[in-house]
Design a protein around this nucleic acid. Structure first.
Length: 494
RNA sequence: GGGCCCGUAGCUCAGCCAGGUAGAGCGGCGGGCUUUUAACCCGUAGGUCCCGGGUUCAAAUCCCGGCGGGCCCGCCA
């Protein structure tokens, strides 16, 4: 079978025979970024650049081709009358779509007015044995190829590239924002003997050196609180969490969170921090905090400027569903659970029932503009401090934007005795089959026993924030290499 | 866990309903062309029709099973 790969291997072989290295260590002269040329072009000047060949238009003795360098495209032309014949023939015979090349030449504008390099020298920098799957600027339509070989998506599609530029700029700007607020960025273990800080099933692994089962963290929370116990007043961490659960448009088993903890603060302070962060970072990254996001079939304008609406969970039920859940007796609540076929692992619990019904009954269409839903039932929040004026509630909020939950935060529980009793309740639920119940963490209790100051904490989903910023509605679009079932390597074209 | 849809050339897809020589455009390769930019013109090669089994004289097409992907629902406090 004569494939593209075989053909190009033949070209590579011939180059080696001609003593031309198809993979030199560096370009023959120092190159400058194409972006810097495009930013301030000076026609007539001589430039050295490098890039991937993404388009070739041959006109016999004149060839136009496009280079892309670090995401920036520039057109080049090479003319038989302007360069020596051998160089022109070399380009014709040995340079293909996808190759990296060095070119030197002078800048000019074509008849159509496009900035172009009139090439006087060419060097092959890396022979590509496979050409790009689609023309540059076009989308890879097969989602499987797009996610499995994301480098091809980013290589060929500037819009995909932009999503990741926004993603990593967002992370950078979150860091700067938190630093500017006096937070210290810390690191905590990814591998943990006891997982915690959220309700989720963990990934398990075996540590041979200690011959013990360990877990990949499901949140950053419990170790960051240990930093507060240690005497750091303001800490944050940006890192991967791992939850062994299903994959869909809003969930990937491996995802990125920013968590922060601040001593002497409560959830009201954290709300102010959160809305300022979401807005400030948007302005830094996008130049605006007014964004558009697809909700259902419509694209909705979303204003990320503070202040965000605060609405209590019970008021949200009243306002959006006309339902006074608060005064609903348990038997009525159970009827609703049946009606919406909601199951509660580990047995009926009023608080959990309310929270589950919230997702089902209130609906996301009411939570498109940034909204803090505040004051959750105590029993659904085993790491939050009980409400200062409502014993049945916890001081907890979730931030919704575009119908998605972006953040979860508490006035943190710092009473070790109460925390221990919450853990015992969780253990009881686990015994009744709740696989996501919080495990009892004695070491964490002991840390709290040494005294943790009043603290406000935040967990912010970075992937979902980037979704809002970029207007995409699948988490796979903002995770460079989303989890996808592995495939046996096909010895294709080998 | 349940449902729907998809898998044919490197890419995008037609052919399947109603079984009968596997197609188009782009890309590749060869030729032509000095201002194109999804260049154009002429020619040409390229296939495990996702895999396995069944029905049939005959299967890309019909049936069963599997693999991979997407979407929806459930789950994800």
């Amino acid at each position: 079978m004569s494939s593209e790969v075989e053909l190009r291997r033949g070209i590579r072989r011939r180059l080696v025979e001609l003593n031309v290295n198809p993979y030199p260590h560096v370009p023959k002269s120092k190159v400058i970024p194409v972006r810097s040329i495009v930013r301030s072009p000076t026609p007539g000047s001589y430039v050295n650049v490098a890039g991937r060949v993404v388009g070739v238009r041959r006109h016999g003795a004149l060839v136009f081709f496009d280079l892309v360098d670090d995401g920036q495209r520039i057109q080049c032309s090479i003319s038989r009358s302007d360069v020596d014949k051998e160089l022109f023939n070399f380009f014709e015979k040995f340079v293909d779509l996808g190759d990296y090349v060095y070119v030197a030449g002078s800048l000019y504008y074509t008849k159509k007015g496009e900035l172009t390099i009139a090439v006087s020298d060419v060097q092959l920098l890396a022979k590509a044995l496979r050409s790009p799957p689609v023309k540059w600027g076009h989308r890879i339509l097969d989602p499987e190829v797009k996610y499995r070989k994301r480098y091809l998506d980013i290589m060929t599609n500037p819009q995909a590239r932009r999503v990741f530029e926004v993603r990593f700029k967002t992370i950078e700007e979150i860091r700067k924002f938190m630093w500017s607020k006096g937070y210290i960025e810390v690191e905590t273990p990814v591998l943990q003997p006891i997982y915690g800080g959220a309700a989720a099933r963990p990934f398990k692994t075996h540590v041979w050196a200690l011959d013990t089962e360990w877990y990949l963290r499901i949140s950053l929370e419990l170790y960051l609180k240990r930093f507060i116990v240690a005497g750091f007043n303001k800490v944050f961490e940006i890192g991967k969490n791992f939850r062994n659960e299903d994959i869909d448009v809003e969930h990937n088993p491996e995802f990125t969170m920013m968590e922060s903890y601040e001593a002497y603060a409560d959830y009201n302070d954290v709300m102010e921090l959160t809305e300022e962060l979401v807005s400030t970072v948007a302005k830094k990254v996008l130049g605006t905090d007014a964004v558009e996001y697809p909700v259902g079939r419509e694209v909705v304008k979303i204003n990320l400027s503070p202040p965000y609406r605060r609405v209590s969970l019970y008021d949200a039920f009243r306002e959006f569903a006309g339902l006074d859940v608060e005064s609903l007796p348990d038997d009525k609540l159970i009827e609703y659970l049946d009606k919406y076929s909601v199951r509660i692992a580990g047995g009926y619990d009023r608080g959990r029932a309310v929270v589950k019904l919230f997702d089902r009954i209130v609906g996301r269409e009411h939570l498109v503009q940034p909204t803090f839903v505040v004051d959750f039932p105590k029993s659904s929040s085993p790491l939050a401090k009980p409400h200062r004026s409502r014993p049945d509630l916890a001081e907890r909020f979730e931030l919704y934007i575009g119908g998605m939950e972006l953040a979860n935060a508490y006035t943190e529980l710092n009473d070790p005795e109460l925390q221990a009793s919450f853990f015992r309740e969780e253990e009881a639920r686990r015994a009744l089959g709740d696989l996501e119940a919080h495990p009892f963490d004695w070491d964490f209790i002991e840390a709290l026993e040494h005294g943790m100051p009043p603290t406000g904490g935040l967990g912010l989903g970075i992937d979902r924030l980037v979704m809002i910023y970029t207007g995409v509605n699948s988490i796979k679009e903002v995770i460079p290499f989303p989890m996808i079932k592995p495939r046996e390597f096909e010895a294709k074209n080998q």
